[in-house]
Design a protein around this nucleic acid. Structure first.
Length: 559
RNA sequence: UGGGGCAUGGUGCAAUGGCAGCACAGCGGACUUUGAAUCCGUUGAUCCAGGUUCGAAUCCUGGUGCCCCGGCCA
């Protein structure tokens, strides 16, 4: 088997492509991913990236990365850098085909002049407010602009002067001359250029007029000979305009195809709202591990493979839908399960003293990192001694039915070490359990007794003397409701923010081998979940993120 | 009758006139030195009404429901 990312996928988009290939409209496939650099990429963009790069790959074609940077008031270099890093991290390569819509400002301008000369565009002096009134409504046609019939010469002169900076922002626009009575509002003489005396992150102050999306996007696609321009559903109404520009200009005609964007339960997916969370300090930044951004998910411990598998699993269609976040979690666990080394870490420690173990005794067990494949697994030494920590939740003084873990008089197995039996419970003045006394069976070394007696409970542990202290960051959904927009009267989505989405545990105890854990390297803390060291982690001040907990059947049974 | 689009188990996606299937979730069991993973089994769906056809999720007609569109944003 080759490990090529994808089997052949079939969906409504490949159906269209197949048709184009058969009828000769195109003889190859070339797509593009066109982010606007006004925010960080999120899991919804990942769907689009995988779709664009994946589809082209499937047909032996190429994919360009093109920044849609036609609005200097919102766009920043910080965003273009983060976007490039995220696309690469996801595992896709645009080679030398990195483009910007701003690369085409020159040709866009020349084509605009052509359109003016053809009588397809005119300079309009209506204000934004007037323009809105002239546009009409959903059910009533609009009215022609009083400037619609200017001569070609006058339009040319005015447009050049717009470019030359002679007019104030908002005072004039260049508009396509189409049909003010079209039932499609996008065709009612849409604005092509607006005046914006604004510094652009790439072109500086070279321009003070900027093209609108509809005009810039189709021409950009055409310039790059993009065969299939894949975008989201809300642009379906724009397709006639997309086609109109290309037809009037008589240039290479890309085919726009629309698909339904990703929605996830318990997740807000709009860049505007994510920006709001960052600005209001609800999260620590775009890369906060609770964010659905690629940078946040990366920091959280997601792998690119998991995200790609997810994109493949959810498929693509034109039906609005909401994917259950549990599916994302499933592919994450599945991926991590196959790659994470198993180690022991106690999240909420409870001290255990093994009374019959030698006072200063110490021994090291050679433990496989991959217990399901011991023969081929690398190992590390794990120290054991008289005092250890176990998980607080692994002890119950009065065990409920089917509780197989530690309880007074009950015997359990310490993973890879010994069987122990609880013989005593020490409490503080408040009745809180602070310490346990146990005895161990020396015969059970390694975790099996010669008599073969059954021990139901198997627990992880860490030698107290050798333990590493660490801070653990446990994450929950950022929102309390599956539908972020299930909002109380008069509120907004921030009313649904989960106040407990971040839980910081400072007293965790880790096995010593974790001292050398590399940032973002995935581990499974056995019986707890998958964790990775955070960017903040330093020697002597370790910090681990819980990427995702293990499935917890026991917890479900307790409900 | 503004225009455009979409309806298949709880969720997402297949089936392109021929036995409605896959994944997740759920439920039951086996196994287990992770109450994980794995394995086995299982509940559950074609928006409605007509029509065409030997046969309709698929084609036709008429409904219903949901989404998008009135930025000089993308």
């Amino acid at each position: 088997m080759s490990d090529e990312t994808s089997a052949t996928l079939s969906n409504f988009i490949t159906d269209i492509i197949d048709e184009h290939l058969e009828n000769g409209r195109f003889d190859h496939v070339h797509t593009r991913f066109p982010p606007e650099p006004n925010g960080y990429l999120h899991i919804g963009h990942a769907k689009s990236i995988c779709l664009n790069f994946g589809t082209a790959q499937q047909y032996g074609g190429l994919t360009n990365l093109r920044f849609d940077d036609t609005n200097p008031t919102k766009e920043e270099v910080e965003y273009v850098e983060s976007i490039k890093a995220d696309v690469k991290w996801l595992g896709f390569d645009w080679d030398d085909r990195l483009y910007f819509a701003s690369d085409y400002f020159g040709v866009l301008y020349e084509y605009a002049i052509q359109l003016i000369k053809q009588g397809n565009a005119f300079v309009c002096d209506l204000s934004a407010e007037e323009l809105r009134q002239y546009r009409g409504t959903l059910t009533e046609p609009g009215k022609n602009s009083p400037y619609r019939d200017r001569s070609v010469e006058e339009n040319l002169d005015l447009f050049k002067r717009m470019k030359a900076g002679e007019f104030a922002d908002g005072s004039r626009t260049l508009r396509a001359k189409i049909d003010m009575s079209s039932p499609n509002l996008n065709m009612r003489d849409p604005v092509m250029y607006r005046i914006l005396h604004e510094e652009h992150h790439r072109t500086g102050d070279e321009w003070c007029i900027y093209p609108m999306y509809d005009y810039a996007h189709c021409v950009s696609d055409s310039q790059e000979h993009i065969t299939h321009s894949i975008c989201t559903l809300e642009f379906e109404d724009h397709r006639p305009l997309y086609d109109w520009y290309l037809d009037q200009l008589g240039i290479f005609h890309s085919q726009q195809i629309e698909f339904a964007r990703l929605n996830l339960t318990y997740t807000v997916m709009s860049k505007r709202k994510l920006l709001q969370l960052v600005k209001e300090g609800t999260v620590s930044g775009w890369d906060d591990p609770r964010m659905p951004t690629l940078s946040g998910m990366r920091r959280r411990g997601y792998t690119p493979e998991a995200i790609r598998t997810f994109a493949e699993t959810i498929g693509v269609s034109k039906a609005n839908s909401v994917v259950d976040v549990e599916l994302l979690e499933h592919v994450l666990r599945d991926d991590l399960n196959n790659r994470a080394r198993r180690v022991m870490a106690v999240v909420e420690p409870l001290k255990v003293i093994i009374d019959n173990y030698p006072e200063n005794g110490e021994e090291f067990f050679d433990v496989a990192y991959f217990p399901y494949d011991r023969e081929n697994s690398p190992t590390r030494p794990v120290p054991f001694s008289k005092e250890i920590y176990i998980e607080r939740s692994d002890f119950m003084e009065e065990p409920v039915k089917k509780f197989y873990r530690l309880a007074p008089g009950q015997e359990v197995r310490l993973m890879n070490a010994y069987y122990i039996t609880c013989t005593g419970v020490v409490k503080d003045a408040d009745g809180e359990v602070v310490e346990l006394h146990c005895t161990y069976d020396p015969e059970s070394k390694g975790g099996m007794s010669p008599d073969g007696r059954k021990v139901r409970g198997t627990m992880h542990w860490v030698s107290a003397r050798h333990a590493l202290d660490a801070e653990l960051r446990l994450y929950d959904y950022l929102l309390t409701k599956a539908d972020p927009y299930d909002i109380p009267e008069g509120g907004d989505f921030t009313d649904n923010i989960n106040p407990d989405s971040l839980q910081v545990l400072t007293g965790a105890k880790l096995e010593p081998s974790l001292k050398d854990a590399k940032v973002l390297e995935p581990f499974q803390f056995m019986r707890q979940g998958f964790f990775c060291a955070d960017y903040d982690s330093k020697e002597g001040a370790l910090v681990f993120n819980r990427t995702i907990s293990l499935v917890d059947t026991w917890a479900k049974m307790q409900k």
